[in-house]
Amino acid sequence: MEIFFEGDMIMAYTLESFSAECHRLLKAEPGPAGREKVCDVLREVLQDETFVATHLGDDCPERNIIYEDPELGFCILAHVNHGAKQSPPHDHGPTWAIYGQAAGVTEMTDWELVEPAGEGKVGKVRPAKVYTLNPGDAYVYNEGDLHSPRRESSTRLIRFEGVNTETIQRYRFEAV
């Protein structure tokens, strides 16, 4: 990986070095253990002010795919979210995601499945855990993990999807 050091402090990542390291980790361990290793690297990247400024500037759209791996299919996305918003409970269908908080605060709720969702059927969930993602935090959501983010003001995130979730079927869930 192409990382620049000054003493013990990491100075800069490039998108190319970051995505190459993530590819290497996920190819070696494609399951949850590899994702946790990617999450550790993401925490380092979130500390890189140059990387964050380059990819999460004010002109960044709310959802911006900055890298899509041609072999493994995972995507790295930059998100600049303006203002308050609460998302409904959701999973990532048959894939996984990693959320990395670069700026702002996100309150995340993990949900417990009560009734599965399906074609034409909204799933039912109940809250299981509420926690906060602060700048520098990153968290893995494996297949089937249900969660919902809430923010009271603007946030900036680097997020992974195991595959581009705009290309897969996902079902809706509601709290009970």
Rank of each mutant, 00 (worst) to 15 (best):
L46Q: 00
N64K: 15
P89C: 00
K37D: 03
P149C: 08
M1T: 10
V114N: 04
T14K: 00
A12K: 10
L42S: 02
D8N: 09
E115Y: 12
A102K: 09
Y13E: 06
V80G: 00
K85H: 15
P127V: 13
N64C: 15
V163R: 05
A28V: 01
V140F: 08
L56N: 07
M11W: 06
R126K: 11
I76S: 04
L133E: 03
A138F: 06
E115A: 13
Y171Q: 06
R63T: 13
A53C: 06
T165R: 03
A97T: 05
T54P: 04
E6R: 06
S148K: 11
D48W: 04
H147M: 04
I10F: 11
C75A: 01
V114G: 07
P88Y: 15
F160C: 02
R63M: 14
K85Q: 14
H55Q: 04
N81Y: 02
V130R: 15
E166K: 14
E29Q: 12
P149D: 00
T109I: 10
S19D: 02
L157Q: 13
R156G: 06
T106P: 03
R63C: 09
Y139I: 05
P89H: 01
H147G: 08
H92M: 03
H23A: 13
D91E: 12
P135N: 11
K37L: 02
R170P: 07
A20F: 09
Y67N: 09
F173A: 04
